[in-house]
Design a protein around this nucleic acid. Structure first.
Lengths: 211, 211
DNA sequence: CCTACCGATCGGTAGG
DNA sequence: CCTACCGATCGGTAGG
């Protein structure tokens, strides 16, 4: 389909716009103007606004995997090193403003948390996929004896994503890098308290991301 | 002004609606239908949509003070007891669904984090007021020697509000109380790690809120 | 992919 | 506070 190329170009703009104006704030008319198509061209490309929103969530999921999961997975072995790489890459993905409004899922999961429907379901599925991956990564570290004082990987996942998302929102809200330093300090302190405090390793959380 | 009574009634609905549909998702027409006024009645009452949004933020701030800050302040002395009371009352304010979409400021600060303007400024001001109050409360506990291992109250504030807001969003997203238990466990563990682990006291974080 | 159009709703105003 | 109205934009469709 030749429409595939157009879809991709429109989706790239749409994901970015959704982090600023929300997924419900997307309009077919504005996307049309921004991408040089007619309004009905966009409508035909996606079928309906809801289908557009679902396509945007799927596109955002791919960017997230590309920027966070895949790099950490490619350059680190299982265990605490990978957990630290995932955290560092998440922070870089937020800090580097891959999207103008920061993390796509931080923005849209709050937007849709009280709006039942297939769009929320898709956001929940993608978010859960990420958190499940982080949990499994923590479990590998536990199995390797790298977090001797931890007994519940899901609890640590909750705490870690709490820090990541709070840093994302607050850095945007205050136009400041300080929240990222707060999150890094919180993550490091928590790892240390769980017995996983290899200083060289936890320093990588705040290091520059791999290219 | 007799308009004052109408304003209050409309604002109560508007604050609640904003936690579900967003502050930009509010429309004068829907508020009119929901409150039995005409559309221009609402428009006249608030002047413009932006002024309506500012009035909604101010109304939400009052509810928050009423539900979280004032009760904790009224029933506890300064120090770690009050910090725990603030945390417990915040969780109750979220868990009890004072607003359908959970905490008003959790919802709107993410919605507006990338939207500069007076509305964002008002949200930031109210949020900062709350965090400053929590920070000062932590500092009283530090001064009383109740958190002997803590040296930066703002860092602890960051960590605590991270847990609160993550629990709020996730309880909505998954229609589950589990995130609140996660947040309580995280808060307790952090207080213990800072030497503030009086078991009787930290148990109050998850206790039923005062009436 | 387009032009042209639909009914509905948007924020806001005139005039009372 | 109301009715009545403004131009603009919404999501979506007909027809090509």
């Amino acid at each position: 389909m030749r429409g595939d190329e157009s879809r991709r170009a429109v989706l790239a703009r749409a994901v970015d716009a959704a982090t600023v104006d929300g997924l419900d704030g997307l309009t077919i008319g504005r996307l049309a103007d921004a991408s040089g198509h007619s309004k009905s061209g966009i409508a035909t490309l996606f079928g309906s606004k809801e289908q557009l929103q679902l396509a945007v969530v799927a596109a955002a999921r791919e960017v997230f995997i590309d920027r966070v999961v895949a790099p950490a997975r490619a350059r680190t072995p299982r265990g605490l090193v990978r957990v630290c790489a995932l955290l560092g890459d998440w922070l870089a993905y937020s800090r580097d403003r891959v999207f103008r409004g920061g993390c796509f899922f931080a923005a849209t999961s709050v937007e849709f948390d009280a709006k039942p429907g297939v769009v929320r379901d898709a956001i929940v599925a993608a978010s859960s996929e990420w958190e499940d991956y982080l949990t499994v990564s923590i479990e590998y570290a536990m199995a390797a004896g790298e977090l001797p004082l931890l007994d519940d990987a899901r609890q640590l996942t909750f705490e870690m994503v709490s820090f990541l998302e709070a840093a994302n929102t607050r850095s945007l809200l205050h136009a400041s890098e300080e929240p990222y330093r707060r999150a890094e300090a919180a993550l490091r302190a928590r790892l240390v308290s769980l017995g996983g405090g290899d200083p060289e390793l936890i320093a990588t959380i705040g290091a520059a991301p791999a290219a």
